[in-house]
Simulated assay, not measured.
Amino acid sequence: SDPGHGLVIAPIVRFKNSDDQLAQPSAVLLPLDQMPAFFLRVSNDPELYHKVAGVLVESNGDKLLELSPDRKFPQEDFAPYSNVSHDWNPSGSGIMWNRYDFPVFLLSEESTQTLRKIADKNEKSSNGYQANVAEFDLVMQ
């Protein structure tokens, strides 16, 4: 999705570890398995939040089935019983209930390979200028 704030252009930076930092507003290339932890971190770190221009989530084939942005107990507020401790959705992260003011896109496997190469090229740039950028210009609602 893209919250619809118009065109976003930012250098592509690959997050390899959960504690990586951003030096400037960037499009973060993120492994799928790190997505829930990254979004939780962004929710709790205003400095990082303001430097995330967009997120490009790498495709991991079958692992996509193990990810759910809903809560572990969807619709818990409407449960007809008092015990709401059961995890109906064990892979649920609850991140879809938070507001993120930057675009997020899930990449195809082919795009993932291409963007990994581009991010690696940006990382190896000797002059600190990252020429390869992502342009987010689609609006989904």
Rank of each mutant, 00 (worst) to 15 (best):
33 D>Y: 15
59 S>F: 13
68 S>I: 02
126 S>Q: 04
139 V>D: 04
116 R>E: 02
67 L>W: 07
125 S>Y: 06
119 A>D: 01
70 D>C: 15
74 P>K: 00
54 G>K: 00
113 Q>M: 13
25 P>L: 14
99 R>C: 12
51 K>C: 09
53 A>L: 09
56 L>T: 01
25 P>F: 15
127 N>K: 07
109 E>Y: 11
134 A>F: 11
89 N>W: 07
101 D>S: 12
86 H>K: 10
90 P>F: 12
15 F>K: 01
62 D>V: 09
123 E>M: 03
54 G>S: 07
17 N>G: 13
106 L>A: 07
135 E>G: 13
77 D>V: 06
15 F>H: 04
99 R>T: 11
8 V>F: 08
56 L>A: 05
14 R>D: 04
17 N>W: 09
47 E>Q: 05
14 R>P: 00
84 V>T: 06
12 I>V: 12
131 A>E: 07
108 S>I: 04
121 K>Q: 08
15 F>V: 03
48 L>K: 01
127 N>C: 10
99 R>D: 13
33 D>M: 15
55 V>D: 03
77 D>Y: 06
75 Q>S: 07
128 G>L: 07
105 F>A: 08
124 K>I: 07
138 L>D: 14
96 M>P: 03
66 E>A: 15
94 G>T: 11
108 S>L: 06
105 F>C: 04
63 K>V: 07
14 R>L: 10
48 L>N: 03
68 S>E: 01
34 Q>H: 14
46 P>W: 02
52 V>F: 11
108 S>R: 06
48 L>W: 03
56 L>C: 04
129 Y>L: 09
67 L>G: 03
13 V>P: 01
91 S>F: 14
91 S>T: 11
118 I>H: 11
12 I>S: 01
105 F>R: 03
68 S>M: 05
7 L>M: 11
88 W>D: 12
37 A>W: 03
112 T>G: 11
90 P>D: 05
117 K>Y: 13
118 I>G: 03
101 D>E: 11
100 Y>I: 04
116 R>W: 05
69 P>S: 06
121 K>M: 11
97 W>P: 07
96 M>H: 06
118 I>D: 09
10 A>Y: 00
23 A>E: 15
135 E>H: 02
2 D>S: 12
98 N>K: 12
60 N>R: 06
132 N>R: 06
6 G>R: 02
132 N>K: 02
95 I>N: 12
24 Q>R: 10
130 Q>D: 07
63 K>E: 12
77 D>A: 09
60 N>I: 04
125 S>T: 10
